[in-house]
Simulated assay, not measured.
Amino acid sequence: MQRPPTFPALAVLGVLVLTACGGGDDQDQDGKAPTTPTDVTAQAGSATSVHVMWQAATDNEAVTGYEVFQADKKVKSLPATKTMVDVDGLKPRTDYSFTVRAKDKAGNLSKPSPVITVTTPAPTPEDHKPPTDPSGLKGTLDGDRAVGLSWRAATDNTAVTSYDIYQEGSRIHSVAGTETTAKVTGLRPGTVYTFTVRARDAAENSSADSNDVDLTTPAGKGDGPSTAPTALKATAEKGSIVLSWKPPKADGAIESHELYLNGKPATTIIWGAMPKGDTATYTMTVTDPPGTRYSVKLRAKLPDGKWGDFSAQRTVVVR
């Protein structure tokens, strides 16, 4: 039987000493604080919650997180990737003030943002009726990292207190119930985004989704054209979902696509050769009960063997 190799004890000791002594080079001597978060807003989402948002701060090294204060009390700590948060457990018909501070790896805190005040509305007991769906959602590109959205107002038996903007099923922004426009920033160039809007009232009842709108941000410098499938449609039939889309243009045949359901890979659709014409179709059998909701998107395997960009996402309900 072959024995495992052994190492001289001195060599191992040397490794331990080097490891223990090497930490000094990694210590952060950064004494410069991040910039102050800007464009802070606070919107009452219900009688007991407030939605706080802001624009990302910058730092000479990197911003690692944000701290949200209600008056002088810290109520939320967030990673650097988050620039919005819901503050719950508040009192109805009460004035609140909020500030936000950015933090870096060395623990430096920015100056507090300007104070933003908001008043929570009166409660609406026994209100279980959601607002109507926002309609006519439209979007326009604003440079390569932002979009503008607009829609027709929803109605409610009491009042619409806010509109929530969703990107592929995740809430990314909120505006007051008196607004019917929103600007979404911090997007990536050359990416397909699918947006929907929901209306919400003071009792936290949410409407269903508005129509969806797809927007593709321009490619960044040096990037080629988008490799995302386009014109994806998902139609529910009894016991199945029928998909159709246009594969991306590429230098060679595209023979397979990867299908994602609810954000997870479900199957790979493979053809020996691409179907004739510029539209591909696929029928997926489903066994879940009627009313089950699916989110669907896909991406193509390019001729060089790499996966392309994701298509826009579609939502479909089993019949």
Rank of each mutant, 00 (worst) to 15 (best):
P134E: 07
P134T: 05
P134I: 06
L137H: 02
K138D: 00
K138N: 05
T140L: 09
D142R: 10
D142C: 01
R145M: 11
R145I: 14
R145N: 14
A146M: 10
A146T: 01
G148Q: 13
G148V: 02
G148I: 00
L149E: 03
R152K: 15
A153N: 06
A154D: 02
D156H: 09
D156P: 08
D156G: 00
D156T: 01
N157C: 13
T158A: 13
T158C: 07
T158E: 14
A159E: 11
V160G: 07
V160A: 09
V160C: 11
T161L: 08
T161W: 11
S162H: 08
S162V: 03
S162T: 11
Y163L: 08
D164P: 06
D164G: 04
I165V: 14
I165R: 05
I165G: 01
Y166D: 01
Y166E: 11
Q167F: 03
Q167Y: 02
G169H: 11
G169W: 03
G169F: 08
S170Q: 15
S170H: 15
S170R: 15
I172Y: 03
I172M: 08
I172E: 02
I172T: 12
I172R: 06
S174V: 05
S174M: 12
V175N: 01
A176G: 13
A176H: 09
G177W: 00
T178A: 09
T178N: 12
E179M: 13
T180A: 06
T180F: 13
A182R: 02
A182G: 07
A182K: 07
K183Y: 00
T185H: 05
G186M: 10
G186C: 00
P189S: 14
G190S: 05
V192G: 04
T196Y: 09
V197W: 02
V197K: 05
A199T: 10
D201Q: 10
D201L: 13
D201N: 15
A202W: 05
A202F: 06
A202C: 14
N205R: 13
